[in-house]
């Protein structure tokens, strides 16, 4: 049912200042309070779900949002899953948005780029809270295709989780480049298949993109049905934890399973912490899961671990901060090491 007889309003030409000069009106019966120019500025700061409501207000608002849409907010997608279940050539983009309770699925034929504009249109300017990649076997062509979609759509990704991703068909260099181009601050890798040492080795921890992320989680690396350690040497991991050569970023959590650290690691980190001049970029919580006990304990203390718990601390005078190292015995053979940075207690 039509609400009121519609009155066509003229939309002033874009970017013309004269036509947009505000007319300040008085009194209660004001038809439209704000000039288009101001409305554009209001819309610029609104999240997408509110913008979609604003489009329903009236023709004028709908037209403004349509014309200037490219300037406005991204759509919010809570989770986007990119996977390829049966055939490497078909990539499925599945996702949902809680705000609108909407769900979507889109299958891309990896052999050609015909479908790319479609998915780019759907994802255009979205803000993706969590991008889940996997299960998929990454190779040059599908990695490139995923990137072309995400970059073409100019998405903003807050977190990426890779789960059950096969790395057998992609080189180390391309895999790192792939992660780098997705560009987020939070990375989680779990159950990665064919993840040989080099994929999560020294080179990984020297990459700026991982160094500057606020959250790194690596767990469950597998190759040929065997668990693969996170093959990083002490010095590289220490530089990573202390945040050497990086600037003004918030680094919070790093969690690595099966790190290949030496028996000197805990001693080294405690000594270095006490003498380090700049700890402003240090990871505040680092967790090393499943370390072989002899690698982190001094021999005379390995007796204590039978009780299940050993605790060390180191104090940095310049910053008045304390580093706590807790070693907790896991079921069976392994120990977990927790490093936490805090105020001097």
């Amino acid at each position: 049912m039509p609400l009121t007889p519609t009155k066509k309003r003229k939309i002033p030409a874009k970017n013309s200042v004269e036509s947009n000069l505000p007319i300040l009106q008085e009194g209660p019966n004001i038809e439209s309070f704000f000039a288009n120019e101001i409305m554009i500025n209001v819309f610029k700061f609104l999240p997408r779900n509110v913008l979609d409501k604003c489009r329903l207000v009236n023709r004028r608002w709908n037209d403004i949002i349509d014309i200037h849409g490219y300037n406005f907010a991204r759509r919010s997608i809570d989770k986007l899953n990119i996977y390829s279940e049966f055939c490497q050539n078909f990539i499925t983009f599945g996702g949902f948005s809680l705000a609108s309770r909407s769900e979507i699925q889109y299958v891309l034929d990896g052999n050609d780029h015909v479908g790319v504009p479609g998915i780019v249109h759907i994802l255009k300017n979205s803000n993706i809270k969590c991008l889940v990649i996997g299960p998929i076997d990454l190779c040059d062509s599908n990695a490139e295709q995923i990137l072309s979609v995400l970059q073409g759509a100019d998405t903003h990704i807050m977190e990426i989780q890779m789960r059950r991703v096969g790395l057998g068909n992609i080189t180390v260099k391309l895999f790192h480049k792939f992660c780098e181009k997705i560009n987020t601050k939070r990375y989680a890798f779990s159950e990665m298949r064919q993840a040989q040492n080099e994929y999560f080795g020294n080179e990984f921890f020297n990459k700026m993109i991982f160094k500057e992320s606020s959250y790194i989680y690596i767990k469950g690396l597998v190759a040929n049905a065997l668990a693969v350690p996170v093959a990083v040497d002490d010095e590289t991991l220490l530089d990573f934890i202390f945040g050497v050569n990086i600037k003004s970023v918030e680094r919070k959590v790093a969690c690595l399973e099966l790190p290949s650290i030496s028996s000197q690691f805990v001693t080294k980190i405690l000594n270095r912490f006490a003498n380090e001049a700049d700890i402003t970029h240090m990871v505040t919580e680092a967790t090393l899961l499943l370390c072989p006990p002899q690698t982190v304990l001094r021999s005379y203390q390995s007796l204590n671990i039978r009780l299940g718990y050993v605790n060390y601390a180191s104090y940095n005078v310049t910053e008045n901060k304390e580093l706590q190292v807790e070693i907790i015995k896991q079921k069976g053979y392994f120990v977990n090491v927790f490093l936490s940075l805090g105020e001097k207690y």
């Binding site: 309070f33 023709r59 709908n62």
Partner: peptide, 20 residues
């Protein structure tokens, strides 16, 4: 405009609706 319905947004901005 946060958590408002379309009708409420119209009222806040004193805009009249013209969609069927």
């Amino acid at each position: 405009t946060e958590n408002r319905t379309v009708e409420e947004i119209r009222r806040i901005f004193q805009e009249s609706g013209d969609f069927s």
